[in-house]
Structures are given as C-alpha cells and as structure tokens.
Design a protein around this nucleic acid. Structure first.
Length: 277
DNA sequence: ATGGCCGGGCCTCCCGGA
C-alpha cells in the first residue's frame, strides 16, 4: 500500500495535477492539506472518477484538509479531541478588546479517516506567523494538544496503526533548510517549536520519513519567490509520524521532487510511504 | 532546463503563506 501526504495549495487550482500524481505514483491513500475551499467546492467528482473516496473539511478559502482513498475510508473525524481554535482578537478604535472569545473557532486543520486498516490523519499545523504573535502561541498549543491526544490513542490501543502526516510547519534540524542563519528570529526553527515537534517521539511515535531518508538538505517545500526551486533553497517541513505497528510496515519513503517542476506546481511536493502488504 | 510569487476573495488590491 502507498500512503502519501501533500500540501497542494488549493485543490481547485491543482486538481488535474493531483489526479495525475495519484495515477502516476500508484498512491492508494493521499492526505491533502491546504485545499483552500469549502466542502461543497471540493472537486469530489474528479477523485471519484479516478476511483477514490473523499473526506474533506473546509470552512473558507483558508486551510482545508482531506483524505482520499481507494482502499476504503471510514470513521471520519474533522478535528481531534481537544483541538484548539483560533480567532483574531477584536478591538475598537482605541485598541480595547470588544469581545471576549471564550471559544474561538476550531479551524479545518486536521482530518482523520481509517483507510486500509490505517488511521490516517491529514494535518496542517498552524504557521505561527511571527515569534510572539498570538498565532505562534496557537501553534505551540495546537501541537501539544495533538501530541496529548495521539499519546492517548496509543495508550488505548498499543497495536494501532496510526499515521500523523502533513505539513508540520516546523524545520526540525538546521540541515533541513538551505540557510539556517536566514531564519534566526523567525518561526519554524525556534526551540519551542522544535521541542513541540520532537515531543511526538516521546509519545511513542517515529518520524519515518527521517528514518528512511536521513540525508541532509532533502526538502519538501520551496518558496515561489526568487527562483527558490532552481536554486534549491528549500526546507523540509512535511513529515509522517507513525505508531510502532505502522512503523514496522514502512518499507520505503519517497520525496517526489518532480512535482515541484513545471507550470502550476504547488510549493510543496508529495511525501510517499510504502507499506508492506 | 527546474526560471524571477501564488491563490482566493473583500477581485485590478489585500491577506496569508513560510
């Protein structure tokens, strides 16, 4: 079985490319991030015509995550228990808060579905925007809540096959980016973010893309600006944490760099896991 | 060649992305 994750940066703008990728790669289950559409706007027909079932959650032009599968798709959850929400602070002209938002809305950043016996989570971790921004605190809280919940899943069933795949928006190592000096003081590389990412290892999960592709300077994202891709100025931010039972099934990992080429590419490329049987 | 931001909506400007 082939299980892949891909931040497509708008599924409507990219649908032909995504279908072509599924066909070319033989991917059975794809976790998609940044669909950038509401449920009724998702091009379900194109996926169904290609033989895939679709589960999607999206509330606006922002975020949006999906799982598509040709090996079954059931028990869909459109958020994880305890997933924090986010809302811009509202204020009047004098800067005084006008609304105490006790329950900010949960965003479309996590979708879980069972496909071919694997609990697949498509995850779009909050960006953080800037160190000290409310979005940065949201990012750390979001990762901590996910880790706590993922630990509970394993405690409830140590044999569970769980894949936590997606765009993690964290650069775990200095060798995961073209120029670490350029990121000093920015998000993605701070110690709290790296700690929040590494905490999944202590919760019992293994980041299997690193396990199978340990080489330095292997990137999954290149900015659209300043010829980042031809100059290979990228970063590695798309990962897959696997539970012990799933880790044992991973026979190989592929970063599909070809997908960044040509017109109409997403700024991220697919990351593919090959599973035995 | 792998090529100089892109996508979506408040749509000819602005926001968010990273």
């Amino acid at each position: 079985m082939r299980l892949a994750t891909w931040n497509v940066n708008s599924v409507r703008a990219r649908v032909d490319r995504v279908i072509a990728f599924l066909d070319r790669s033989g991917t059975d289950v794809l976790a998609i991030q940044e669909t950038k559409c509401r449920d009724e706007q998702f091009p379900v027909g194109a996926f169904e015509a290609a033989g895939y079932e679709v589960a999607h959650t999206g509330f606006s032009a922002w975020n949006g995550v999906a799982v598509v599968s040709r090996v079954g798709l059931s028990d869909v959850e459109t958020s994880f228990a305890g997933q924090p929400g986010f809302a811009k602070a509202s204020a009047d002209a004098a800067g005084v808060p006008t609304l105490l938002d006790a329950a900010p809305p949960v965003e479309a950043r996590a979708l879980g579905a069972t496909c071919g016996g694997v609990r697949v989570w498509s995850l779009y971790v909050p960006h953080g925007r800037a160190v000290g921004d409310p979005h940065y605190a949201y990012k750390l809280a979001w990762l901590a809540a996910l880790r706590d919940e993922a630990a509970r899943w394993l405690a409830a069933d140590p044999a569970a096959q769980v894949a936590l795949t997606g765009d993690w928006n964290v650069i775990p190592l200095d060798t995961d980016v073209y120029d670490p000096a350029a990121f000093v003081g920015h998000t993605h590389v701070t110690a709290p973010e790296r700690e929040a990412f590494a905490a999944f290892e202590r919760a019992g999960y293994t980041e299997v893309t690193r396990e199978h592709l340990p080489a330095e300077h292997l990137y999954t994202y290149w900015d659209y600006q300043q010829l980042a891709f031809p100059r290979n100025k990228g970063m590695r931010i798309d990962f897959a944490y696997a539970s012990p039972a799933l880790r044992d099934r991973v026979t190989g990992v592929v970063i599909d760099r070809e997908e960044r080429k040509g017109k109409g590419a997403s700024d991220h490329v697919p990351v593919i896991l090959d599973l035995d049987a």
